Computed example of a mutant assay.
Amino acid sequence: MPRLNVPAPEDVPAGAQRTLDDVEAQLGFAPNMFKTLASNPAVLDTVTTLQGTMSRVLDGRTRHSIALAVSQANGCGYCLAMHTHVATEFGGMSAEDIELARAGSAVDPRRAAAARFAQQVVESRGRVGDADLADVRHAGYTDAQILGIVAVAVQFLLTNFINNVNQTDLDVPAADPVDATVSR
């Protein structure tokens, strides 16, 4: 059960309602996280603006992989479910791609390096080692792209924290547990 109040539809401020309508048009429904954020239009606007801006930083599959890796590292069940749904329905990712991303990996070595680095950023609270930077550079990422990986990871930290605090009700099927044998 959520711990933060979701405004009744008639109590959603007009600007927030427009944002919810935009999210619904994009996804086919307004997820519970966004309905909760509607109680604070500035936060709703911050999250949706950040998502829009970060959608231009890296390719979609890499962003989905980072979302899944970060959400797994933070134990955010809501975000794992939602990112699994979005990555499958809109990102064309297979069940294997999703499982690997949650483990900080991928079939594609370059995407695997980004997911692994994002998890390292989260797990180390940004205090990654020189070897972590060398690994992501070796995969072909420039310093500008590494900044993008960090920014995308932080974007998902924000929503993970919001949903972990709220214990947001799932509005898509729960993500399956990760196979412990999947290697990074």
Rank of each mutant, 00 (worst) to 15 (best):
V23F: 01
A30V: 14
M33F: 12
K35Q: 15
K35V: 02
K35H: 01
T36M: 14
L37W: 02
L37Y: 02
N40G: 02
A42T: 12
V43T: 14
L44I: 10
Q51V: 00
T53W: 00
R56V: 07
R56W: 06
R56D: 07
L58V: 03
L58H: 00
D59Y: 00
H64N: 14
S65P: 06
S65V: 06
L68D: 05
A69M: 04
Q72L: 04
C76V: 03
C76H: 05
G77M: 10
C79I: 07
H85Y: 13
A87F: 01
T88Y: 04
E89Y: 03
G92V: 14
G92P: 07
M93L: 14
M93H: 03
S94A: 13
A95Q: 12
E96Y: 09
D97S: 09
D97K: 06
D97T: 06
E99W: 06
E99P: 02
E99T: 09
R102A: 12
S105I: 11
A106D: 13
A106E: 06
V107C: 01
R111V: 15
A112Y: 06
A114H: 04
F117H: 13
A118P: 02
G126L: 01
V128E: 03
G129E: 11
G129N: 04
D130S: 15
A131F: 10
D132M: 06
D132E: 13
L133K: 12
A134Y: 07
D135G: 11
R137M: 09
G140N: 04
Y141D: 02
T142C: 09
D143N: 13
V150L: 07
